[in-house]
Structures are given as structure tokens and as C-alpha cells.
Design a protein around this nucleic acid. Structure first.
Lengths: 145, 145
DNA sequence: CGGAGATAGTTGCAATTGCTATTAAATTGT
DNA sequence: ACAATTTAATAGCAATTGCAACTATCTCCG
């Protein structure tokens, strides 16, 4: 029994639970990230750099699905905290190379506790979690930037 | 073959694809919402009201997973566009009752085209979409506010 | 060469977001 | 009744976001 407006219900669309879920999970991170004086965006930026050590802003943006206009202030903030360095490339001065500092690598050690603490926050069976993971990446894969 | 830092990789965590997916989908909405001069938050707020006609800010926040501090400016904006009215309740003056106006109901007619246009944007099989939906609501259900 | 066009990053802008006061109103306990 | 507590909404703050406009640099092609 549905009327023609059913498609305009919050429960009819995938986007809404996606949106809500994302925000709720990030909210769960807050107390753990607060200990390190990191925001979620700063955290995933450091995660990307820990995996890659050195990237330019464009590459970072591709990995994180973030605009360079969003990243610039985040990177400046992380630089001011001493976790990374920002330097123009010698080969191509348009590129700004972002590099993890000594202090940034130390942070990684301590940050190991964050995923540990968070792991208990999503109450899905392991198979469900990996299925959710697969579906999300399938959707992401089909979203051309 | 993993080292102790594997858990700090973007690909090891559910939160990151959730976050990225949510943003990408909302970005897909933009061109369709632009036609109505609506933002995504304004759109889901109207959707909640179309389903309920009249709610106070607290109830809206529960439905949308949004803080009242976030909703206040959104509601003022939508009021200024003429889609809703904000009035204090007679019974309990702490409550601000939000009601859809005539113009707000007209908007609903036109907004029917939005989910139509969007439906082609997520390339999942129907079973996959409903499984994703189920998993997201399971995660949401376990997130106590 | 040297200009046209492409590319990388920054800045400005409007809106979102969660949080912490703060204010106002209602409820509860004595 | 009235003080203490709880509840509802708003205001202020810092950070995030995407987008458009802009600057600087590089590349390509005549």
C-alpha cells in the first residue's frame, strides 16, 4: 500500500541511512580522537600519509575523496601541530609535497589505540561487516569523480 | 602478510568508505537539488516534514540524526523561503512547532522528480541495494544517541 | 621563442555539523 | 508555593565541505 509520494520518504532511499551512519560513526570517534587533539578529517589525512609517507595535495585528495580547498586548511593545521611538512616540489613548483615528520611517525604509534577502541563500536557480524564493506566500495567505485 | 599498522590503513576500516560514500552520493544530488535551490540538509528536512506535517525541533532532530543547533538555521532558512512555519506551542512554550506551508506542499509535487533522477546513480543490483540498506540500518540501530 | 591552454594549489563564500554555554519554560519534590 | 532540576531551543565557536574565482607554473604547439 503506497502512494505516489513513497519515494520521497526517508526510509525509501539509500542516501539517508548512508548519511546518518557516516555521521554517527564519526561521532563515535570523537572521544578517542580528542585524546590526540585530532579531528576526523585530520585523522584520515594522517592515515593516508602513514600509508604513503609523501604525497602532493592532489593525490591526497584522490585518496580521501576531498577537494584541495578542503585539504589546504587541514594540512596547514597538521603542519602547525608538527605532524607534517609542506614543501613545493623542486621538479614542478605547482606541486606541494606533504611529508610526515618524526613527530608524525611517533603519533602513529600512539594512534594504534584508536582502531582498537573503535572496533567494538560497530555491532555487525564479521560477514556482515565485510559485505557492507564490499557494497560501499562497489558504490564508491561507480562514482566517477 | 600484515604489519602491526595494518589496522591504521584506510582500507581496513568501515568508517572511511561510509564517510566517502555518503559524501559522494550527496554530491550527486547537488545538480538536482540546485534546480529547487535546496541543499541536501534542507531537502531531507522537508522530506521528514512531508511525512509528518508538523513536528517540533527535537523530534525532527531524532528523525534526521541532527542536533537542534544544526536544525535552527536550516529551519530559519526554509521558513524564509516560505516552505514552513515556525511557531511556539501553546501547550508548552518551550516547543517550537514546525509546519509545512501551502508552498511547502507544492514543492513536494515538483520534488518527486528528485528521487527519480537519482535512482540511476547508484549502480547496485536490487538485492545488493536492499542488503546495504539493511546493514546500514542495523549499524544505525545499535548507535545509541 | 611566446602565447594558449592545462594543471596545482589557495582563497573566499555559504552551508553544515557537533559541542558548549545560555535562556526560557515546565516539572518535581519538599 | 517555590527552589532545584530537567527540557527545548538558540547563539557562539571551530572545523568541514564543495564550489568558483584566482594565481602561479608548466606544457604544447605554431
Amino acid at each position: 500500500m503506497g502512494d505516489k509520494y513513497d519515494c520521497l520518504k526517508l526510509k525509501s532511499q539509500l542516501c539517508f541511512p548512508l548519511y546518518a551512519c557516516s555521521k554517527e560513526i564519526i561521532r563515535k570517534y570523537k572521544p578517542f580522537l580528542d585524546k590526540f587533539d585530532l579531528t576526523y578529517t585530520q585523522y584520515i589525512t594522517m592515515m593516508a600519509l602513514w600509508e604513503n609517507e609523501s604525497m602532493n595535495v592532489r593525490e591526497l585528495g584522490l585518496v580521501l575523496f576531498l577537494d584541495s580547498g578542503t585539504l589546504t586548511p587541514v594540512l596547514k593545521k597538521l603542519e602547525s601541530k608538527g605532524y607534517l611538512e609542506r614543501k613545493r616540489s623542486k621538479e614542478d613548483e605547482r606541486n606541494l609535497i606533504v611529508t610526515v615528520t618524526e613527530k608524525g611517525w611517533k603519533l602513529r604509534e600512539e594512534a594504534l589505540s584508536i582502531p582498537e577502541s573503535m572496533s567494538s563500536c560497530v555491532n555487525l557480524e564479521p560477514e556482515e561487516a565485510s559485505e557492507l564493506y564490499r557494497l560501499l566500495y562497489k558504490v564508491l567505485g561507480t562514482q566517477a569523480r
